[in-house]
């Protein structure tokens, strides 16, 4: 797997998220309270809400538009809602965030 450096871990607030633009649309990159990073599609499968604007709690995010909750590890919608967001490998090395380079060639979500 090859990795792309997208920025420093401090660029994302704790329990926060920022988006990354790619040719195929935006990706949301999350940083949890314990400094773990996750990367997912930024588009909510419900009505397209921008997930990087949601509230991050535990390893989950709540969509800002209608409060669907997604597990950042599996991408699955929680509770009664049904849907899934694409997840991408991400990790932190020496304070830098790296995401799986395959996001560049992915199909539009």
């Amino acid at each position: 797997m090859s990795w792309i450096d997208i920025g420093a871990i401090e660029d994302i607030p704790l329990r926060g998220s920022r988006k990354v633009k790619t040719k195929e649309g935006c990706i949301a990159v999350f940083r949890t309270a314990e400094d773990t990073v996750f990367a997912t599609s930024n588009v909510c499968p419900h009505k397209g809400g921008p997930l990087n604007e949601g509230i991050v709690h535990g390893n989950k995010v709540t969509c800002p538009l209608h409060n669907w909750v997604f597990d950042l590890e599996t991408g699955e919608a929680q509770g009664a809602d049904e849907g899934r967001i694409q997840t991408y490998a991400a990790r932190v090395e020496n304070g830098r965030i790296l995401i799986d380079a395959s996001v560049l060639g992915r199909q539009a979500a």
Partner: peptide
Amino acid sequence: APLADLSLEAAE
């Protein structure tokens, strides 16, 4: 602003 803009990067 977006954390990074990869829209100009080529796919692998």
